[in-house]
Write a protein that binds this DNA or RNA. Structure first.
Lengths: 234, 234
DNA sequence: TAGATTGTTAATCGATTAACAATC
DNA sequence: TAGATTGTTAATCGATTAACAATC
């Protein structure tokens, strides 16, 4: 019993979790370049990390490296895919068919990560029934009916910030386990957990935020602070 | 001379820089709610931080708090806006007028953060000359001419990943100071610095990455790991 | 065997939290 | 004055880096 946990190595720290998708991305690239083995030092170089960090990180997945040789890229990639749930075929819906929503639906963003987009919703009558990337936009009012008939794992929030909180609560009540939030609202997992259906196991949806505006401001902050240093240097 | 530095408090750590845009967002919200003063504890509650952390953070901006009273929201907001460069009116161009590019151009994402979108570029002849959110899309080949005639601070990369590296190098050579990267390519600041025009002061553009796919995978990872715990609990 | 490279432990660094005197 | 809340120092926690024995 305990062995099964041990086999997977130590639990993943927050920071390691953040780096996992990057590892996945780089390993995929390596496979495309037909590089089948790599040392911690080389991988670190490509990713802007230290060799030590890479070894520490990869060790969390039960030491798939080999002394004197390095890591088997294919094996590592498979392992990562498994942990990241790429093979789970998670099912997602998009809530809000505005500009951002349509952009998200258009690319292969979802499919390339193993997520299937199974529905697009909007509340605007002018949009409902129209096609977006070959999919009909459903009436937001039909969310409950849809979720009763179809398994939905993830909801993508690309609607107006003012509607975000209420919608997130509604989604939580529907038992949707993951919310990918593109609005400016900070959705609290503990608040949403209160809406979780009582018959469902364990509690509440996880929230992943993409604050685009914050990211832009971080860039501006960097420009701003480098600007300040510049005159001092002359 | 030294006092001027001291007045601003200690240098901003990485983590504080990440939280700054969030503070800005929440302070704006407070002002809209007509809340003009707030204690570290209350602000922490709204943001999901600890009171201690808020005080530690805000102290980096030269202690604008008052014992027994709290913080003046208006004053704090002004201070943040200044540090984040909201009043600098940074000028941005968008490179790649595909789905994501058009979505970015459409909202008020830029203007609301004090950034002005001054040009949209694409290399596809079918798109060049067409309108996007009331702006003509320019030929990507005219980038150099455009940048010689107009100040450009930031470039937003919403083009195909395969074109990203070359374009980033070209933008670096044009002396563009900030790159907001939406492609899957990891742009190395040190690599780009090598392309920086020799006549420009200090070296190289700063890069801010938004790996949308990585964010989605982080959510999937969370779902995946909670799933694992679930059966064990029953 | 000799060289390379891992896994893992210990040392360092940075960020968060706790505590409390200073003071509004 | 008494109560509230900051600024700041010290203690704790977690993550990164360094080092090196184990081993392919």
């Amino acid at each position: 019993m305990e062995d099964e946990y041990k086999a997977k190595g130590p639990a993943l720290s927050k920071q390691v979790k953040c780096r996992l998708p990057r590892y996945y991305r780089h390993l995929k690239l390596l496979l495309e370049e037909n590089i089948l083995r790599i040392s911690s030092g080389e991988l670190a170089g490509r990713m802007g990390l230290t060799a030590s960090q890479v070894r520490q990180d990869l060790n969390c997945f039960g030491g798939c490296g080999q002394q004197g040789y390095g890591y088997n890229v294919k094996h590592l990639f498979t392992e990562m895919a498994e942990i990241l749930g790429v093979n789970e075929k998670f099912r997602a819906i998009l809530v809000g068919a505005g500009n951002l929503g349509r952009a998200m639906a258009a690319g292969n963003l979802f499919l390339s990560r193993g997520v299937e987009l199974v529905g697009i919703f909007d509340r605007d009558p002018a949009v409902i029934g129209k096609q977006v990337s070959g999919r009909v936009v459903y009436d937001e009012g039909k969310l409950e009916v849809f979720c009763a008939a179809n398994r939905v794992d993830v909801a993508v929030l690309t609607l107006t910030s003012s509607e975000a909180q209420a919608m997130a609560e509604r989604l939580a009540a529907l038992g949707i386990r993951g919310i990918w939030n593109f609005t400016n609202i900070e959705l609290s997992e503990s608040v949403l957990a209160a809406f979780w259906p009582p018959e469902a196991p364990v509690g509440g949806p996880s929230v992943q935020n993409v604050y685009l505006g914050d990211s832009l401001m971080q860039l501006c902050l960097e420009l701003r602070s480098r600007e300040e240093k510049s005159p001092a240097a002359e």
